[in-house]
Simulated scan of single mutants.
Amino acid sequence: MSTPCHTAVVTGAASGLGIACAEHLALQGYDLILIDADRRRLNALADDLTTRTRRSVEVYQADTSCPVAITAIVRKIQEDESISLLVNLSDAYDARNFQDGQLICRAASDIRHRGRDARLLQASIVVF
């Protein structure tokens, strides 16, 4: 099944479930924006996926525990009209910083307002 002209954002993309999700989405026809703090692993994954799937893969090095990084990620999502899926697999979500969750949800809401089927998949450890 191919999903042309759609882009998925995957945070926590450089290990474990993030790699599996990125691979699955690329094989389903999504272009990707991969986000993680580990630039070396992101680049290796992007090279592998581009070679095997011929999909466009952009890497974005960011520490998703940093509010400034989250704001930049949300801005990217809001500005890129091709994004239709956000998979948030970052290592931990600090429940004490409610703003982080609100920003990610707002980004998903912005996707939906474009007339797209916005989807937000969240699979992080919650820290209280």
Rank of each mutant, 00 (worst) to 15 (best):
D47N: 06
C66P: 02
E58D: 10
D63T: 08
I125G: 10
C105H: 12
L121G: 05
T7H: 07
V126P: 05
G29V: 06
R114H: 12
V57E: 00
C105N: 13
R112V: 11
F128K: 14
F128Y: 13
G12L: 07
C21E: 06
L45E: 02
Y60I: 06
A69M: 05
L85F: 15
V126S: 14
A62R: 08
V9S: 04
I83D: 03
L25W: 07
Q99V: 14
G16A: 11
L120S: 05
I33R: 02
Q78D: 13
Q78E: 15
L27Q: 14
T11P: 00
S109N: 12
M1T: 15
R40F: 03
T71A: 10
R39Q: 03
Q99R: 13
E81A: 12
L89S: 13
Q78H: 10
G101Q: 12
S56W: 07
S124F: 12
L25C: 10
A123R: 13
R39F: 04
N88T: 13
I19P: 00
Q102Y: 12
R41F: 10
Q102L: 14
V9N: 00
N88I: 11
R114A: 11
G29H: 06
L85A: 14
L42W: 01
R52C: 03
H113E: 15
G12R: 03
S84L: 08
S82V: 08
L34P: 02
D63K: 08
V87S: 13
A118F: 10
R41W: 07
A107T: 04
D80N: 15
A8S: 05
S2Q: 14
S84P: 07
A118Q: 08
P67L: 09
D94G: 07
L32W: 04
D80Y: 07
L49A: 00
C21T: 09
F98N: 11
R106F: 14
G18K: 02
P67W: 06
I111N: 02
R112I: 12
L120P: 03
L120C: 08
T7Y: 04
L32C: 05
T7M: 08
I73G: 05
R55N: 09
A20I: 08
M1I: 15
Q78A: 14
R39M: 03
E58R: 08
G12Y: 04
G12M: 06
I73A: 06
I33L: 13
V127R: 07
Q99P: 04
L103Q: 14
S124K: 10
R39P: 02
D110M: 07
T51I: 07
T11H: 01
L103V: 06
Q122D: 11
S15E: 14
A72D: 09
G115Q: 09
A44P: 00
V127Y: 08
A69F: 04
R39G: 01
L42Y: 01
L103M: 15
R55S: 09
R41C: 10
D94I: 06
A13C: 11
D100L: 11
Q28M: 14
D31Y: 09
A14W: 01
S2T: 08
R54K: 11
V9C: 02
